[in-house]
C-alpha cells in the first residue's frame, strides 16, 4: 500500500529555493540571508507541518474517522496554541471555500 511507504530523506523538507524566496520577501531587498538561517527555517517548517498533522491525525482517530481534512488541521492548530496562525488560516479556509463554491474544486 503506497500510503504506508516511509518518507525519503530528500522529501522531508520543502525545496530550499521556495523557502528562500518567502524569507527574502520579509527582509530588506539589500540584506543578505545566511545559508544556516535558510536551513534552520527549512527544518523548522517541516517540524511545524508534522506537529500539526500529527495532532490532526489524533483528532481523526479519536472521532474514528479515516480522512484528515483541512478542518482537522485548523482544530489542531487551535488546540496546539498557534494563535497567530489559526485565525488567519480560519479566514483563508472560509475564503477558499467561498471562491471554490463558484469556480469548482481543485484537486491535488
Amino acid at each position: 500500500d503506497p500510503k504506508d511507504k516511509p518518507v525519503l530523506d530528500q522529501e522531508r523538507y520543502l525545496p530550499i529555493a521556495n523557502v528562500t524566496r518567502l524569507m527574502k520577501g520579509q527582509m530588506d531587498p539589500q540584506a543578505k540571508l545566511a545559508k544556516d538561517a535558510k536551513e534552520c527555517v527549512q527544518e523548522c517548517v517541516s517540524e511545524f507541518i508534522t506537529f500539526v498533522a500529527s495532532e490532526a491525525a489524533e483528532i481523526c482517530n479519536q472521532q474514528k474517522r479515516k480522512t484528515i481534512m483541512a478542518d482537522d488541521l485548523l482544530t489542531a492548530m487551535e488546540s496546539l496554541g498557534f494563535d497567530n496562525f489559526a485565525e488567519p488560516m480560519r479566514i483563508f479556509l472560509q475564503k477558499y471555500r467561498q471562491v471554490h463554491r463558484i469556480t469548482g474544486p481543485y484537486h491535488v
Binding site: 500510503k3 504506508d4 511507504k5 516511509p6 508534522t50 498533522a53 500529527s54 490532526a56 491525525a57 489524533e58 481523526c60 482517530n61 479515516k66 480522512t67 484528515i68 481534512m69 483541512a70 482537522d72 488541521l73 479556509l93 477558499y96 474544486p105 481543485y106 484537486h107 491535488v108
Partner: peptide, 12 residues
C-alpha cells in the same frame, strides 16, 4: 499516524 489515514484534497 498520518500515514495510516487518508488525506483530503483540501488538507495539503
Amino acid at each position: 499516524d498520518v500515514r495510516c489515514l487518508n488525506i483530503a484534497s483540501d488538507a495539503p
